[in-house]
């Protein structure tokens, strides 16, 4: 048990690395010697870009959960098989549209900035959350559900006391996947002026400064790994 716990906490190495890289001067000191260019001093400090990025991703995840979970609950009620299949198709369709297309289509409606980016992240983030929640809710043991009904739980009590707690690990895994993917997707938002870690990447590309691209990419990767590790910690161990 002790050893297992130790293994779990080892996951904190990613957040630690991320924080280390955000100390001013550390990342340039690591990347500049590679001879790919100079990271230099961007107009906004890296920690600020990282925070903006994190804010976008977390906000998107919160909205995704707030939309996706009720949707999954609604379509998994008995007698709604057709609705469930329809929602799965629609949600799946959202993911087949290229990221750039979603963002480009959102700009005329929402203008430049963080709003279209957030919309894109939500559209993409919904897929794993809804499909995992549906799988989780459908996977609840029929025996437990029958017992719950037979003992006099109302539909609402069954949902809160039995279905959601039993589906929780699968739902959380969906949120985790969605969040981690969105760290990558959110870099595209810089093209729309949403800021975030896409900014050094785009600037680096236009200035042909690979070091700058690398600094954004390294931080985005570390952010993704950190979120993944932290959310894994929050999942209960079987």
């Amino acid at each position: 048990m002790r050893g297992g716990r130790g293994g779990r906490w080892a996951a904190l190495v990613w957040p630690a690395l991320l924080l280390l890289c955000l100390i001013p001067g550390v990342l340039p000191a690591l990347i500049d010697p590679l001879g790919l260019g100079e990271v230099g001093t961007p107009e906004r400090p890296l920690w600020q870009l990282t925070l903006t990025h994190l804010g976008l991703v977390v906000l998107a995840s919160v909205v995704v959960l707030a939309l996706g979970l009720p949707l999954a609950v609604a379509v998994t009620r008995p007698g709604r098989d057709a609705l469930r299949q329809l929602s799965e198709t629609l949600v799946g369709l959202g993911q087949t549209v290229p990221t750039f297309a979603v963002l480009a289509l959102a700009v005329p409606a929402l203008g430049f900035g963080w709003a279209p980016t957030l919309l894109g992240l939500i559209v993409y983030g919904l897929v794993p959350v809804v499909s995992n929640a549906v799988v989780g809710l459908q996977g609840v043991s029929p025996g437990a559900l029958d017992a719950a009904r037979g003992m006099g739980m109302s539909a609402r009590q069954r949902l809160w006391r039995v279905e959601l707690p039993l589906a929780r690990p699968v739902i959380l895994a969906g949120v985790r996947t969605s969040t981690v993917y969105n760290v990558g997707t959110a870099t595209v938002g810089a093209a729309l002026g949403a800021g975030g870690l896409g900014e050094p990447i785009i600037n680096g590309l236009s200035q042909q400064n690979t070091a700058l691209v690398l600094s954004g990419a390294v931080l985005a990767a570390l952010l993704a790994l950190s979120l993944d590790a932290l959310m894994a910690l929050s999942e209960p161990r079987p």
Partner: peptide, 16 residues
């Protein structure tokens, strides 16, 4: 139902 005991073959204990 709350006034009637109910036992089934699958038992249906709540695993959590």
């Amino acid at each position: 139902r709350r006034g009637i005991g109910y036992v089934i073959q699958q038992v249906g204990l709540f695993p959590h």
